[in-house]
């Protein structure tokens, strides 16, 4: 498998005809799984993905001895950050009040067995800044210092954004769980 990826990459580096599409197709699913988390809609996710691929094709000549997925994911996240900064001025919900914290119980989650699509739908409903911080910290493993640097905010703001993002997601999740529960019993 790794060999195949290496050949795909080499072909791109040699600008072989059709190599770009081959690489694009091969990593489409993976790329979208990252960009979908950082965006609100499918279309936006494709936009981020394509912008990321542009960067990949332009710089693939310099790509060496690295796992492509890791490199590609960093590119997608950076591109998503660019989009986030562009979107920020339209982000009227920046100061969204997460409201009263709803507690989520482990049993509920196990019973509900939320699918990937369900959870992704909830993440997509987060405000851009909450979504971004939550993704960076909880899913992609960035530290608050890195997030603060990337987004140009203070570490404290990053922490409070994260906790509010969690709260908002929990509330959304709770609603879903309650709905599913009511569906189940009624």
């Amino acid at each position: 498998m790794k060999n195949k990826v290496n050949i795909l990459i080499k072909d791109c580096q040699k600008q072989k005809q059709g190599s770009e599409k081959a690489l694009y197709e091969h990593f489409f699913s993976y790329g979208m799984s990252v960009s979908l988390r950082y965006t609100a809609t499918y279309e936006e996710a494709v936009e981020v993905l394509n912008d990321s691929y542009m960067k990949v094709f332009k710089t693939i000549k310099n790509f060496k001895n690295d796992t492509f997925k890791g490199w590609f994911r960093r590119i997608i996240i950076n591109t998503a950050m660019d989009h986030y900064r562009k979107m920020k001025k339209y982000d009227f919900l920046e100061g969204y009040d997460a409201g009263n914290a709803e507690a989520i119980h482990a049993e509920e989650l196990i019973t509900a067995q939320l699918s990937y699509e369900d959870l992704l739908g909830l993440v997509n409903q987060l405000t851009p800044s909450y979504r971004t911080v939550f993704n960076l910290y909880a899913i992609d493993g960035y530290k608050h210092e890195e997030i603060a640097k990337t987004l140009g905010i203070s570490v404290g703001a990053s922490k409070s954004n994260l906790s509010r993002a969690r709260q908002m997601l929990k509330n959304l999740l709770k609603k879903t769980l309650d709905y599913e529960f009511s569906e189940a019993i009624g």
């Binding site: 989520i104 119980h105 990937y116 939550f134 899913i139």
Partner: peptide, 28 residues
């Protein structure tokens, strides 16, 4: 509902586990 509340870490892990296993994304 007297079960244990989910900690932040647990919640993050739960989300990560699901979100890192994408389903149904096909080439478009």
């Amino acid at each position: 509902m007297s079960s244990r509340k989910l900690s932040d870490k647990e919640f993050d892990r739960y989300a990560r586990n699901i979100l890192k296993k994408p389903e149904g994304i096909v080439f478009d």
